[in-house]
């Protein structure tokens, strides 16, 4: 465990609470992609199966896994019931079947081992790397976002971005290297690059988030 990893997980946790706070404070889920939230739930459910047999290996990991699964399920529940009126299926239309299919293909091609758990784990890693696309696509369609939504996306992007120095740290200092997670994590972070640029040049200067 190193500082980058802790900061990354904290950033992930903060992103989930910013999202819940955004819905509570605006009484709406406008601008949030339900598809991305569903993909994230799929990611956590296929990656954290080992919670059943490694619960005591690390209470930190096990509790974070539970929090991620439960909070994402709760977010989806809120979006489909309490804040359903703000759901706009007309703009949340990114073809998630291609993302799930692509991740499934990569999971079969590049698992560490051909066991159910390792293939599902690999699937979840590849799926997470593209799970934000429906959300970014929706941002593209609306051309703008509430400031609190951009903070949510920044924290979410920063989580896996911080895992990259964590992987470098572990590679150089512990000789531990996880190629699947690293490649997918770099792809995931690159997908945020234009968002990060706009966030840095606009939102951090107090302007509204608008696409050029």
């Amino acid at each position: 465990m190193n500082l980058f990893r802790i900061l990354g997980d904290l950033s992930h946790l903060v992103s989930i609470f910013i999202l819940l706070q955004k819905m509570r404070s605006t009484r709406s889920c406008a601008g949030i992609s339900l598809r991305t939230q569903i993909l994230y739930l799929m990611v956590y459910c296929t990656r954290y199966l080992d919670i059943f047999w490694t619960f005591n290996a690390s209470l930190y990991n096990s509790s974070m896994k539970l929090v991620f699964i439960l909070s994402t399920a709760y977010t989806i529940y809120l979006m489909r019931t309490v804040y359903k009126t703000a759901l706009d299926p007309q703009i949340d239309t990114f073809a998630t079947y291609y993302l799930v299919g692509g991740a499934g293909l990569l999971a079969v091609l590049f698992p560490y081992k051909y066991t159910v758990y390792e293939v599902l784990w690999s699937f979840s890693i590849w799926l997470e790397s593209v799970a934000i696309l429906p959300q970014l696509f929706m941002l593209q369609r609306t051309g703008e976002a509430e400031t609190i939504t951009t903070h949510y996306l920044f924290a979410l992007g920063a989580y896996r971005a911080l895992y990259i120095p964590n992987w470098l740290y572990r590679w150089f200092l512990e000789g531990h290297f996880d190629p699947i997670a690293t490649v997918a994590g770099i792809i995931q972070t690159l997908l945020y690059s234009d968002f990060f640029y706009i966030y840095y040049t606009k939102v951090l200067k107090g302007k509204k988030f608008e696409l050029p």
Binding site: A57, N61, M64, Y112, W121, Y163, D178
Partner: peptide
């Protein structure tokens, strides 16, 4: 190689 199978990250 075996070591990578230890999933100690989220």
């Amino acid at each position: 190689y075996e070591e990578v199978l230890v999933k100690d990250e989220l």
